[in-house]
Computed example of a mutant assay.
Amino acid sequence: MLLLPATLTLRESRDTLRLLSQALQGERDGEVLVDASPLQQFDTAALAVLLECRRLALAFGRPFGVRNAPEKLSALAALYGVNELLLPSAPAPAALPAATA
């Protein structure tokens, strides 16, 4: 299982994707599972990293899944319409709270 860092924003996305790609290429058998439980601070770059990791896994003919996604990540994935690609077994998340000025 691949493990996400505690922080995954645009700043960390390139390095995180590189590390995940290397780990994915090192193990070429079975389902690619990403554990998102360490995520505490993230933005839409986390979705981009996960989508690219999914693309790489599928290119190797391997199923892909994200486990233990924080509720806010699930809500963000739903907002962008990619929750079925990344979190297919996850229940529908609650709406994101409204932003305050």
Rank of each mutant, 00 (worst) to 15 (best):
A98G: 03
V34S: 01
V82N: 09
S37Q: 07
G26T: 01
A95V: 05
P70C: 12
D43K: 03
L4Y: 14
A77N: 04
V49T: 10
A95K: 12
L19D: 14
Q40F: 00
D43R: 00
S37K: 09
L20E: 02
A45S: 14
A23G: 05
T7P: 07
A46T: 06
N68T: 00
L56W: 01
E12R: 05
A57T: 10
A94K: 14
R14L: 03
A57K: 05
E27A: 11
N83Y: 08
S89E: 14
A101F: 15
E12W: 09
A78L: 07
C53H: 04
A46F: 01
L85G: 01
A101H: 12
L10Y: 09
E31A: 09
V82G: 06
A99Q: 14
L20G: 03
L87Y: 07
T44F: 02
A94V: 04
A90Q: 12
D29G: 03
R54H: 12
E52S: 14
A46K: 01
L50E: 08
V66F: 03
L20V: 05
L19I: 00
R28H: 03
E71P: 06
L56R: 15
R18Q: 15
L24H: 00
A77V: 01
L2A: 13
L96H: 10
N83H: 14
L50N: 10
L2Q: 13
L20D: 00
M1E: 10
R28E: 04
N83M: 14
R54Y: 13
P91G: 13
A101D: 15
R62G: 04
A90E: 14
V66M: 02
G81L: 06
P5E: 05
S89G: 13
A69F: 07
Q25I: 05
L4M: 11
